[in-house]
Amino acid sequence: MARFDDEKALVQALAAMAALGVRDVDAATAYPTRAVEAALGAPRTRIPWAPFTVAAGAGLAAWLVMWWTNAHDMPLDVGGRPVSSFWTDVPIIFETMILSSGSFAFLAFFLCSGLPRLHHAWFEANDLSSGFWLAIPIRTSEGDVNVVARLRACGALAIEVTS
């Protein structure tokens, strides 16, 4: 793992690793940066599409529950009003859609990111929070010497080996 002072240096190092043909490069940053995402070639997440499907299903389920309970299983005549009305069901359908899609997106984010987890090799790095880190797998070959030299040339402040 190589630590850099800022995102520019990290982007430069990512480009250098790509030029050297190093694979399985990963990175950690203090805050989200589009430049690092682009340099790493991080794919766009498809999570936001799934909750729409979940919302549609949950909204339909909410409407069916309201219809079945109030119009089919226990119809009550309240001042001659219709036992089932789509317009009075809209508030609950809408809220159910929001609740289900939001909860699903939240859970999907953590599961897709491999969280929660108790331990990760990166945690062994000294002061993971403070810097911009580049992580590459060690292959114990001559090429690694070039890689380390290149990382230093790109401004790596520290290089650490974690298990």
Binding site: A28, P32, T45, I47, G102, F106, L118, L128
Partner: peptide, 24 residues
């Protein structure tokens, strides 16, 4: 929850956080 600032996690984070804002 084991957050370590992985860039791939940040990419998802931005998308999902924006989506939650869009729902809220």
């Amino acid at each position: 929850l084991g957050w370590r600032g992985s860039v791939r996690a940040w990419t998802r984070y931005r998308a999902v956080y924006g989506m939650l804002a869009g729902l809220a």
